[in-house]
Computed example of a mutant assay.
Amino acid sequence: MNQPGFSLGPRRHPRRMSLTPMIDVVFLLLIFFMLSSRFGLDAVLPIAGGAEGAGSEWQGAPRLIDVAPDAVLLNGVETAQTDLPDALRPLMPDDGGAVILRPRDGADLQRVVSVMDALTVAGFGNIILVE
């Protein structure tokens, strides 16, 4: 078929590749990652985790705070959240022992965090959260 005088016509230039589909994909990925990422800072709650299974000696009077949906109880006695630090101070040992915080059924997380914040602001830094 390679005969002299046989021509396939003028030589065509290769077609340029369009960048439009690639740009569309890049913008779709950009929108996806912007919508799926979180821009806020996460708050860190300092909670004592205990001594990793090792026993430790309890110091002083019991300091158990139950956070219920409608009340805060210190050692079983209902106490207002604002009065909690003053009621807790006489129970603390001199070297700053731990305070046990126990959320009860139905108590929401925001209520537990607000009690923890109130205790931390009042100077009680060693808070143990139990189930």
Score class of each variant (00 low, 15 high):
residue 108 D to P: 01
residue 68 A to W: 05
residue 89 R to H: 00
residue 124 F to L: 09
residue 50 G to A: 05
residue 69 P to Y: 03
residue 122 A to T: 00
residue 59 Q to R: 14
residue 21 P to W: 11
residue 57 E to C: 11
residue 125 G to H: 15
residue 55 G to F: 10
residue 71 A to P: 05
residue 28 L to T: 02
residue 66 D to V: 07
residue 76 G to W: 06
residue 35 L to Q: 03
residue 73 L to S: 12
residue 70 D to G: 08
residue 110 Q to H: 12
residue 10 P to M: 11
residue 103 P to E: 09
residue 104 R to P: 05
residue 87 A to Y: 00
residue 131 E to S: 07
residue 13 H to G: 12
residue 67 V to I: 15
residue 95 D to V: 07
residue 71 A to F: 03
residue 53 G to N: 02
residue 84 L to W: 00
residue 109 L to E: 13
residue 39 F to H: 02
residue 115 V to M: 03
residue 104 R to C: 05
residue 45 L to H: 14
residue 11 R to Y: 03
residue 25 V to Y: 05
residue 28 L to R: 05
residue 43 A to F: 02
residue 63 R to P: 00
residue 105 D to Y: 10
residue 98 A to E: 13
residue 127 I to C: 02
residue 121 V to Q: 09
residue 56 S to E: 11
residue 78 E to I: 08
residue 55 G to C: 08
residue 10 P to C: 08
residue 116 M to P: 01
residue 32 F to I: 10
residue 64 L to N: 08
residue 14 P to F: 02
residue 13 H to T: 14
residue 2 N to W: 03
residue 78 E to A: 15
residue 13 H to K: 14
residue 91 L to K: 00
residue 111 R to K: 14
residue 25 V to I: 08
residue 82 T to P: 00
residue 52 E to Q: 12
residue 127 I to V: 13
residue 17 M to A: 14
residue 51 A to M: 07
residue 36 S to C: 06
residue 74 L to D: 03
residue 23 I to E: 07
residue 38 R to A: 04
residue 27 F to L: 15
residue 22 M to R: 12
residue 44 V to Y: 10
residue 11 R to Q: 04
residue 95 D to L: 13
residue 105 D to L: 09
residue 61 A to Y: 11
residue 121 V to M: 07
residue 39 F to D: 00
residue 45 L to T: 10
residue 58 W to L: 15
residue 20 T to Q: 13
residue 5 G to C: 01
residue 37 S to C: 05
residue 100 I to Y: 04
residue 82 T to H: 02
residue 107 A to I: 11
residue 39 F to M: 02
residue 94 D to E: 14
residue 65 I to C: 03
residue 48 A to E: 14
residue 38 R to L: 07
residue 4 P to Q: 04
residue 58 W to D: 15
residue 59 Q to K: 13
residue 75 N to Q: 08
residue 97 G to S: 09
residue 77 V to F: 08
residue 95 D to W: 06
residue 35 L to T: 06
residue 62 P to F: 04
residue 118 A to M: 06
residue 47 I to Y: 06
residue 74 L to W: 01
residue 46 P to C: 05
residue 52 E to R: 09
residue 49 G to E: 09
residue 118 A to I: 08
residue 131 E to N: 09
residue 96 G to R: 14
residue 1 M to W: 07
residue 128 I to L: 12
residue 34 M to N: 07
residue 70 D to P: 01
residue 111 R to H: 07
residue 100 I to K: 03
residue 103 P to G: 04
residue 116 M to S: 09
residue 2 N to A: 10
residue 37 S to L: 01
residue 103 P to Q: 04
residue 97 G to A: 03
residue 88 L to M: 02
residue 110 Q to S: 15
residue 73 L to H: 06
residue 16 R to Q: 06
residue 80 A to K: 13
residue 23 I to R: 11
residue 56 S to H: 14
residue 14 P to E: 09
residue 130 V to T: 13
residue 23 I to K: 13
residue 80 A to Q: 12
residue 16 R to V: 09
residue 127 I to R: 07
residue 99 V to F: 01
residue 65 I to S: 03
residue 55 G to P: 07
residue 25 V to H: 06
residue 115 V to A: 01
residue 39 F to G: 00
residue 72 V to C: 12
residue 80 A to N: 12
residue 85 P to C: 06
residue 82 T to I: 06
residue 26 V to Y: 04
residue 33 F to N: 05
residue 28 L to W: 09
residue 5 G to M: 02
residue 79 T to Y: 06
residue 110 Q to L: 09
residue 41 L to P: 00
residue 102 R to Q: 13
residue 81 Q to W: 03
residue 94 D to V: 02
residue 13 H to E: 12
residue 70 D to M: 13
residue 22 M to L: 15
residue 5 G to Y: 01
residue 109 L to K: 14
